[in-house]
């Protein structure tokens, strides 16, 4: 599959949710059970991405500089640091560790 096609298809797919939300009758999606599903799936997908980005490379579980960097990121989230700080510090931690070891 062509990369451009993928970029456009994914963009259209994500936009479709937004447009559907504006087009459908308001009542049907306000059901708390449906909102609960959306919240759970969002957390599950993001957590899956955390796990894979932190511990997997080339389909293998691998412990490297990413893990300490993510632990630092978690500490920063607990301390309510802003997004950009969390991301930048995590990158710096991994970069410095790789420079030393």
């Amino acid at each position: 599959m062509n990369l451009w096609l993928g970029v456009l298809a994914a963009s259209a797919a994500v936009y479709s949710w937004k447009l559907i939300g504006f087009l459908i009758p308001t009542k049907s999606l306000k059901h708390p059970r449906i909102a609960d599903l959306a919240a759970l799936v969002t957390v599950a997908l993001l957590s899956g991405l955390v796990g894979v980005q932190t511990l997997v490379s080339d389909s293998r579980v691998e412990l490297d500089a990413r893990l300490p960097a993510v632990l630092v990121a978690i500490v920063l989230m607990v301390l309510r640091a802003p997004f950009i700080v969390v991301v930048a510090v995590a990158a710096a931690v991994a970069a410095v560790l790789r420079m030393w070891f």
Partner: peptide, 20 residues
């Protein structure tokens, strides 16, 4: 990787999921 951008991606997801 030299700049730790792979770890930055992981941290970005941490920051996105944490408030949830």
């Amino acid at each position: 990787k030299v700049w730790g951008l792979d770890a930055a991606a992981a941290a970005a997801f941490v920051a996105l999921v944490w408030p949830r």
